[in-house]
Design a protein around this nucleic acid. Structure first.
Lengths: 210, 210
DNA sequence: CCCAATATCCCCTTCAAAGGGTTATTTTTA
DNA sequence: TAAAAATAACCCTTTGAAGGGGATATTGGG
């Protein structure tokens, strides 16, 4: 689909062994070239634009600016580069934040270099490569609670409440009376044990009801 | 984690050729057994509980009840079964809806049976297997817009607005004056070209600003 | 140095929000 | 099939949040 020949790779990783071994393996076992490697983002940020990388392999636990904080800055410096996270963190929040901030792939550090090389090809070809445990966490984060205490109608109304709609707009959209909307909202509050829209939204999000 | 030896597989797929060829290949090239195959969910729903499948391979375009609508019902009938979607649809909404409704994996139909067999092992071992294009779409759906017109503070406030918080609670949480919150919200409205919380949230979500 | 971001305060009007009820269908399910 | 949910609609009340209009001061980064 894309340029299958040679991509320019940059590795940002503080552990020298890991950094150099990935660099070596990518250089020797793939058509791609490792242009530069850096031990931190702070060391990389002045020079990385000149490297013109197509793919950046980025660690999360870095000295100085963390990989998480480096992500948005890298995206700004090199908007067209793909960024693959390579980290020991399997913490769901860390993973989701990295992806929200523009990472195109996410691997744990036990990943064999052959998989990382395949991941480079994948991002270049429109894929979103991830470790199995990572993609499971991503999927889980998207999954709605299948046994909600709310009825379909209540869920539908709570959805609109979470969009900030007021009772009048909800009643218009659902072709029901405003008073009916109020009743449903009251029932939602009772079931979720809250007494305001804000808390209903927060509880519902936490329980993945919406 | 689970039984690694032999999983019980059920295939729900209307195209007989695809259905039988996957059934044959899984039975002969993996340790798993295909217990039953069905041409539709409507035909499956009476009998599938007796099949006690560990993994269900589910098509989306099915006669009668669609795969999308079948998902929540399957989850209710067989809460512990993993469901892998196998479909021609690469439409982002369809993918996201399937995952939200409890699918554990998602593949397009050009996927070789070897990959599907690997995916069965992956779901059984806590993975979330997906086609590369599918996982790219999943990742894209999670990504925030990196060039937002909003300032950090405005984004932060809009985030709280989207949680349904009122001005007083926002001012308390951020340790700033209520009037300051009002000013920020006014600026947000101007920038997003809206004049209500509801519209601000809707526009912001559409543009992935929050 | 200047502009954008952030922060603070004042005015105003309107009506949405939440709490308290009751009653009547329809649909689900036990 | 009868009981139990779910859905729908109505009434009354109080409070203050929401949105529109302004003015002004401080701060921080390019």
């Amino acid at each position: 689909m894309h340029n299958h020949t040679t991509a320019r790779i940059v590795i940002i990783e503080d552990d020298e062994t890991i950094r150099e071994s990935y660099a070596y393996l990518i250089s020797h076992n793939s058509p791609h070239q490792v242009i530069s490697t850096y031990p931190s983002f702070d060391r990389a940020k002045q020079k990385i634009q000149k490297d013109m990388p197509d793919v950046i392999i980025l660690d999360i636990r870095l000295p100085g600016t963390s990989g998480t904080d480096a992500l948005p800055q890298l995206r700004k410096l090199l908007p067209s580069a793909y960024i693959i996270m390579l980290t020991v963190f399997e913490n769901e929040e860390v993973i989701l934040e990295a992806l929200a901030n523009g990472a195109s792939g996410y691997f744990t550090k036990n990943t064999p270099s052959s998989r990382v090389i395949a991941a480079i090809d994948e991002v270049l070809n429109g894929g979103g490569p991830m470790s199995p445990e990572v993609s499971r966490k991503v999927i889980r984060s998207m999954q709605k609670n299948s046994d909600s205490p709310l009825t379909r109608r209540e869920t539908q109304i709570l959805d609109l409440v979470a969009k900030g709609k007021d009772r009048n707009r909800i009643s218009e959209e659902l072709f029901i009376n405003v008073e009916t909307v109020k009743t449903h909202i009251k029932h939602i509050y009772t079931k979720l044990n809250v007494n305001s829209r804000a808390d209903a939204i927060t509880v519902a999000r936490k329980q993945k009801l919406i």
